[in-house]
């Protein structure tokens, strides 16, 4: 069987293009380059109501994204939602009296956790818990309160 070097070259080019496309997708299109390989630590926060928060929702301080939600579970004893947060290791100077609140990005956007730094000298470590939390604002409750208030005023 004769051997064609042009064919070998073209096949090599094809395979290289395919692998190049995979790398393009991994690095440029997906989040692989940004978060997965960095060291991080875990903290938890308990919310009365975690609303529409999802796993992988962003966690930010002063609008800068520093981590993401990794798990949301329900505590049977206290009837609270326990949110596990993964924070990049380089942001290791969050005071331990910081407070966490759930906000919505835009009127209809996704929900995210915003951490408001406190004034303490000791910092949050791996597996520590944020005590001060503010639940998600459920739109129906706000509208309901507004309507009740309007009815009471009349």
């Amino acid at each position: 069987m004769q051997h064609s070097y042009t064919q070998d070259t073209l096949v090599g080019l094809f395979v290289a293009c395919g692998i190049g496309a995979l790398f393009f997708m991994a690095l440029q299109v997906s989040n692989l380059g940004a978060y997965n390989h960095q060291e991080s630590y875990l903290i938890t926060a308990r919310f009365e109501n975690s609303g529409g928060l999802k796993v992988k929702s962003p966690v930010s301080v002063a609008g800068v994204r520093i981590g993401r939600v990794t798990a949301i579970t329900f505590d049977l004893q206290s009837y609270e939602s326990v949110v596990e947060i993964q924070i990049e290791a380089k942001y290791n100077t969050l005071p331990d009296d910081s407070s966490a609140s759930i906000f919505t990005a835009g009127l209809l956007g996704e929900q995210y956790i915003s951490i408001e730094p406190g004034g303490s000298e000791t910092y949050l470590e791996n597996n520590s818990e944020i005590d001060l939390t503010q639940s998600a604002i459920v739109l129906e409750e706000v509208i309901g309160q507004f309507l009740f208030k309007a009815a009471a005023d009349e």
Binding site: A26, Q28, V29, S30, N31, A34, R65
Partner: peptide, 19 residues
Amino acid sequence: FWSQMQSNIDFYDDIVNGI
């Protein structure tokens, strides 16, 4: 365009599953 794409497309969930 790029940053929203990168923050919402997950490598394992989306790209690996597509492959």
